[in-house]
Design a protein around this nucleic acid. Structure first.
Lengths: 101, 101
DNA sequence: CAGAGATGCAACCAAAGAGTTGCGTATATC
DNA sequence: GATATACGCAACTCTTTGGTTGCATCTCTG
C-alpha cells in the first residue's frame, strides 16, 4: 500500500532482479540465492522487504517458503508516474499556447 | 540513466512531493522549502538527489537556481514496471491454458 | 530415529540517508 | 559601499540498509 515501501523496494538492483525472476515463476529464497553472489539470508532479507511492500506474497509449503509476485503495487507505481507525467505534459501545452497567442 | 537512482529518488515522500510541485511549475530550493517542515539545506539535498537521478535539471539565473522537471527517467521507470507486469500476465495466461487443456 | 535440507531469528558491522548548524560567497538593491 | 538575499559546502548526528556469521527449529527421507 505504501508508495514509500514500493519505490524503496525497487530501488535496489538485487531486488529488481528478484522481481524479474519471480515474474516468470514463483520460487524459494534458496532457489533465488543460487547464482547470486550473496548468502541466502541476504536474499531472504530482500524478499522480506519486497513482502513488506506487498510486491510478493509468501506461501509456506512443508519445509519451504514459496514467494509469488503480486503485481498490484506495480500498477500503483505506474499510476503515480503517469499522473505526474501527464501534469507535466499539460503544463507544457499550456505554456506553448500562451507563447503562440 | 540509473534505475537505482531514479527509484531511490522517488522512494522518499518529500522528494515525490517536490516532483509533484515541479510538475506544475519550475521553482527554486527556497521557494520549495517554504511550507515544508525542514530547512532549505535539507530541500537542497533532496533536489541534488533528484538531479543525480536526472529527474530535474538546474538553471542558474543570477543569484537563484531554478529547478525544472525532466520527465524522461519517469518514462523509463514506467517501461520497466510495464515490462514486468506484462511478463507476469503472460505467465498467468500460459498457466491458465495449461490448466484448461 | 537420525541426518540432511530449508527456514527464521539475532547480533554485529560498514556505509548511506535524512536532517541539522555554521560559515563562506556571490548577486541584487538601497 | 553596505546590507540583505540566495546559494553551496562541510561537519556532525541518528537511523536505516545491505551484508555477514552463528544458531535454533521444523520437516522430509533413508
Amino acid at each position: 500500500m505504501s508508495a514509500d515501501a514500493v519505490f524503496a523496494a525497487l530501488a535496489d538492483p538485487t531486488r529488481r532482479g528478484l522481481v524479474e525472476s519471480l515474474a516468470s515463476a514463483p520460487a524459494t529464497a534458496t532457489d533465488l540465492a543460487k547464482g547470486l553472489p550473496m548468502t541466502r539470508q541476504a536474499v531472504s532479507k530482500h524478499l522480506a522487504m519486497l513482502a513488506a511492500a506487498e510486491l510478493v506474497s509468501t506461501e509456506r509449503r512443508g519445509r519451504e517458503t514459496r514467494y509469488t509476485l503480486r503485481p498490484e503495487p506495480l500498477r500503483e507505481v505506474s499510476r503515480w508516474v503517469d499522473a505526474v507525467g501527464d501534469e507535466w505534459a499539460d503544463r507544457l501545452s499550456r505554456l506553448e499556447r500562451s507563447i503562440r497567442d
